[in-house]
Design a protein around this nucleic acid. Sequence first.
DNA 1: TATGAATGAGCTTTCATTCAT
DNA 2: AATGAATGAAAGCTCATTCAT
Lengths: 220, 220, 220, 220
Amino acid sequence: MDNNIDSAIGAILDAILAEEGRMAPKKRLVVEAAILCFAEHGYDATSTRMIADRAGVAEATIFRHFNTKKALLMRIVEPVVKRLLIPAVEEEAGVFREQAKGDYRAFIRAIFLSRLAFADRYAPLIRIILQEYLVNEDLRQMLNAYAGGVLAKVSQEAFGDFFASGEIKDFPTDRLLRWKLSLFAGYYINRTILAPGDWDDEAEVDAMLDLIMYGIAKEK
Amino acid sequence: MDNNIDSAIGAILDAILAEEGRMAPKKRLVVEAAILCFAEHGYDATSTRMIADRAGVAEATIFRHFNTKKALLMRIVEPVVKRLLIPAVEEEAGVFREQAKGDYRAFIRAIFLSRLAFADRYAPLIRIILQEYLVNEDLRQMLNAYAGGVLAKVSQEAFGDFFASGEIKDFPTDRLLRWKLSLFAGYYINRTILAPGDWDDEAEVDAMLDLIMYGIAKEK
Amino acid sequence: MDNNIDSAIGAILDAILAEEGRMAPKKRLVVEAAILCFAEHGYDATSTRMIADRAGVAEATIFRHFNTKKALLMRIVEPVVKRLLIPAVEEEAGVFREQAKGDYRAFIRAIFLSRLAFADRYAPLIRIILQEYLVNEDLRQMLNAYAGGVLAKVSQEAFGDFFASGEIKDFPTDRLLRWKLSLFAGYYINRTILAPGDWDDEAEVDAMLDLIMYGIAKEK
Amino acid sequence: MDNNIDSAIGAILDAILAEEGRMAPKKRLVVEAAILCFAEHGYDATSTRMIADRAGVAEATIFRHFNTKKALLMRIVEPVVKRLLIPAVEEEAGVFREQAKGDYRAFIRAIFLSRLAFADRYAPLIRIILQEYLVNEDLRQMLNAYAGGVLAKVSQEAFGDFFASGEIKDFPTDRLLRWKLSLFAGYYINRTILAPGDWDDEAEVDAMLDLIMYGIAKEK
DNA sequence: TATGAATGAGCTTTCATTCAT
DNA sequence: AATGAATGAAAGCTCATTCAT
C-alpha cells in the first residue's frame, strides 16, 4: 500500500515536472509532503508547518516555491488533471472506440476499468479532489473547466457512434454521462473510502454495465 | 429562494426543538446563523466570530449553548438526521410499499420524489453534510450509524417483497442500494449545486427509473 | 522627565476616553505601551509583540481592541488632534486676539508659547506625528483634513484684524502661515529632538517675533 | 516629470560613480530601483524583493554589492551628501560671497535658489532624507556629521563678513542659520510634497528674503 | 559577477475557547 | 441567559540575509 502511495506520488510529481521542467529537490519534498498531508487530513486541517516538518524543510521554503497554501494545492492538482486525466480520456476514447467496433458495452467497460486504474494510481489526489470539490471554488472551477468540456465531447462523440449503430435508446447525452459518472463515483467512493476491502472490480463493473445496457437498450 | 432558505431553517429548528424542548432566543439565533455560515463557506472557513456577528450575539454566547464549534455543527445536523431523515424513511417505506402494491417502480418513484422534497426542505443542511462528509470523521460516523443500518434494512425489506413478486433479477441488495444512492446523489448535486436551474424532477426521476427497471428487470 | 511623559500619556488617554467612553484596563495599558514604543522606535520598528510585552498583555488583546496595528496608531493620534489640537487652536485664537487688542506681535507670541506648551504636553505623540507624517498617507490625510482648514481659517481671521489695524504689510495669509509654521516646527525639532538641552523659550520666541515683525536688517 | 526623475537618478549615480569608479551594470540597476522604491514607499515599506524585482535582478545580487539593506540606503545617500551637497555649499559660498560684494541679501538669494535647484535635481533623494531623518539614526548622524559642521562654518564666515559690513543686526549665527533652514525646508516640503503645482520660486524666495531682512512690519 | 535555493526569525493577524460578572 | 474582556496557540506569510555554484 505504501508502495502504491509512493508510486502515486511519483506519478503526480512527473505530471508537475512535465509542466515546469526541472524541480529543486526541496520543492519536490514539499510536494510529496503536501500530497500526503492534504490527503490524510484535508486541506484546512493541514498547516503549512505540518507540511514543512514532514518535508524536512523550512516553512519559508514552501512559500518561496508556491506563493500561498492554496496555490500549492492547485499546483498539485492541476497538472494531473490537465496533463493526465484529460489527455488520457481523449486518447483512450479514440482507442477504445476503435477496439469496441460498435460494441457500446465493451467501450464503456474499457473506460471504466481504465479510469478505475487511473484513480487508484493517483489515489491521494483523488481523495483531495473529492474532499475539496464542493468547498474550494477555485478547484471546482478548474476541474469543471478542464473536465466538463472534454468529458461531454468524448461522451457525445462515442454515444453518437453507438446510437447510430441502433443499439441504444435515444437519450440526452448529458443525462447518460451524469448517470455513468454518478455510478462510477459512487462505486469508487464506496470501495475506496467508505468500505475499503476486497472488491472484485470486474464483477462490479460488469454489473453496472448490465444495469446501464439493459436500462438503456432499445426494447425489442 | 430566500423563502426556501427561511423555511429550511425553520424546519431544522423544529427538529432541534423536538430534541430539547424550549430554546433560548439567542440560541435560536446562533443556530440560524450557523446553518447559513456553514452552508455558504463550509465548516472550516466559518469562524465563530462570523456566526456571532451574523446572529447579533456575543461569541461567548455560542459557547454557553454549545461547548465547542464542532458540537454546534453536530447539534445542527444530528436532530435532522435522527428525528426526520430516519423515521421518515422508515415510515415512508412502509406506506409506500403498501401503496405500491407490489409495483417496485412505483415504490422507488415515491421514495425518490419524497426524498428530493426532503432534501430541498433542508437544503442548507444537505449542503453541509455533502461538504463535510468526507472530511469530518465525527459527522461521517454519526451519519453512517444512523443512516447506514436503516437504509439497508428498508432497502432489503422492500426489495425482498418485490423480489418475491418475481419482477426483478436476483441482486445483492447493497449493490442495488448503492446504485440508487449514487444516481440520486448525483442528480441532486447536479441540479442543486453544479447546475442549478429549471429541472423537471418528475421527468428525470422517471428516466432514472427506466434505467433502473429495465436495467434490473428479469429478461423475459 | 518621566513625569512629563506620564502626564503626556495621561492627557492622550483622556482625549481617547472623551471619544469612546469607559476603557477596559488592558486596553488602556496597550495604548500607553504603544505610545511609548511608537515614540521611541518609530511605527515600523515597533512590533505588536513589543507593545504587548510592554503592556503586560497578550498580543491578541491588542487586536481585540484595535483591529490592526495601523488602526492602533490612528486611534492614538486622531483624538488628540481632533479634540485637543483643533479646538484649542480655535478657542485660543479668539481669546488671544481679544487680549492682544490689535497687537499682532502679542497675539502670535501668546499662540507660539501656548502651542509650545501643548507640544511638550503631548511630546511623544508629536514625535510620532513628525516621524510618520511623510511616510504614512492615512495619517497625513487625517492631519491635513483636521488641521489644514482650521489653521488657515484662524490665521486668516486674525491676520485680517491686524492687517486692518494698519500694523502689517499686505501679505498672502497662506505664505505668512507657512513661515510661522516653518519657524515654529524648526525651532521645536531643534530644541526637542536634535539638540535637547536648556533652551530659553521666551527668548527664542521673542527673537522669532522680532524676525517676523522687523527682519534682521539694522534699522536705519 | 519622468525625465526629471531619470535625470535625478543619473545625477545620483554619477555621485556614486565618482566615489567608487566603474560600476557593474546590475549594481547600477539596483541603485536605480532602490532610489525609486525608497522615495515612493519609504525605507521600511520597501522590501529587498521589491527592489530586486524592479531592478530585474536576483535578490542575492543586492547583497553582493551592498552587504545590508541599510548599507544600500547609506551608499545612495552618502555620496550625494558628501561629494555634492557639501563641496557645492563650500565652493558656492565662496563664489556667491564674492559676487554679492557685501550684499547679504543677494548672497542668501543666490544660495537659496541654487540649493532649490539642487534639491530638485536630487528630488527622490531629498524625499528619502526627509522621510528617514527622524527615524533612522545612522542617516541622521551621517547627515549631521557632514552637513552640520560645514553649514555652520559657511554660515558663520559669511555672516561675519556681512555683519562687519554693518548691514545686519548682531545675531547668534546658529539661530539665524536655523531660521533660514526652517524657512527653506518649510517652503521646499510645501511646494514639492504637500501642494505640488506651479510655484514661482523667485517670487517666493524674494518674499522670504524680505521677511528675513525686513520682517513684516510696515516701515514707518 | 550573478544567482537560485534555502532559511531562521519574526511579522501581523485569527482562532476557538475561558472566565468573571 | 448573556456577555465583554482576555488569551495561548497557532495560523499563513514576509523579511533580510547566506551560500553553493
